[in-house]
Simulated assay, not measured.
Amino acid sequence: MLYAILAYHEEDVVASWTPEEDAALMADLQRVHGQFHREGRLGPAARLGATARASTLRGPGAGLVIDGPFAETKEQLLGFYVVDCATHEEAIGAARDLRRANPTAVYEIRPIMLYRPGRPFPVTEAPAEGA
């Protein structure tokens, strides 16, 4: 089953890191990404842009577009992963791997009920003929 692992952190803290600190953290995370990729479990992942540039669409009808993230919280959603795990416990283990690389982040683990891939992913697309 596919799981979304949502990465939350205090955006001001992340923005305060030096380029060297940020690069070191990303190198640590890249090692975890590489592990997931080698195991064939990593789907799309992204580091999201600043919440100051976010918009939210809410309300009835065509809705109202407002500035900013959806919720007012201490932490902001700064990125996400889609991973293929057999069980919820395995998905929690994947989030723990990410947390070891970035121990100050908060990770939310949620099953994905519908996945429309932008690129092939073993669980959702059959291999191409002759592949």
Rank of each mutant, 00 (worst) to 15 (best):
A50P: 13
A50E: 14
T51C: 07
T51Q: 15
A52H: 13
A52F: 06
A52N: 12
A52K: 15
R53K: 08
R53G: 10
R53N: 08
A54W: 10
A54T: 05
S55Q: 10
S55V: 04
T56P: 00
T56R: 01
T56V: 01
L57V: 09
L57F: 05
L57E: 07
R58L: 08
R58D: 09
R58N: 02
R58W: 07
R58V: 11
G59C: 05
G59S: 05
G59V: 03
G61R: 00
G61T: 04
A62F: 05
A62T: 10
G63H: 11
G63F: 15
G63P: 14
G63M: 11
V65C: 14
V65R: 15
V65Y: 15
V65E: 15
I66M: 08
I66S: 14
I66F: 00
I66T: 15
D67T: 13
D67I: 12
D67P: 12
D67F: 10
D67M: 08
D67Q: 15
G68T: 04
G68V: 04
P69L: 07
P69N: 10
P69T: 14
P69H: 12
F70Y: 15
F70W: 13
F70L: 15
A71I: 10
A71G: 06
E72M: 05
E72H: 11
E72F: 07
E72Y: 07
T73K: 11
T73S: 03
K74I: 05
K74G: 06
K74V: 06
E75H: 04
Q76K: 09
Q76P: 08
Q76L: 09
L77I: 05
L77Y: 03
L77W: 05
L78Y: 00
L78I: 14
L78F: 08
L78D: 01
L78N: 00
G79T: 12
G79Y: 09
Y81G: 04
Y81R: 08
Y81S: 07
Y81F: 11
V82S: 04
V82K: 03
V83T: 03
D84T: 04
D84V: 06
D84S: 15
C85D: 12
A86D: 14
T87Q: 10
T87Y: 15
T87M: 13
T87S: 13
H88Q: 08
H88F: 06
E89Y: 07
E89V: 14
E89P: 12
E90F: 01
E90G: 01
E90L: 01
A91N: 00
I92A: 07
I92Q: 14
I92M: 13
I92W: 09
G93I: 11
G93F: 06
G93L: 14
A95I: 08
A95M: 02
A95K: 06
R96A: 07
R96C: 09
R96N: 04
R96T: 08
R96W: 01
D97P: 02
D97W: 01
L98G: 01
R99M: 00
R99V: 02
R100Q: 08
R100S: 02
R100W: 00
R100T: 06
R100V: 07
A101P: 02
A101G: 06
P103W: 02
P103A: 07
P103T: 12
T104K: 06
T104A: 10
A105N: 02
A105G: 07
V106S: 15
V106W: 02
V106D: 10
V106A: 12
Y107G: 05
E108I: 12
E108P: 08
E108Y: 11
I109S: 04
I109A: 05
I109F: 04
R110P: 13
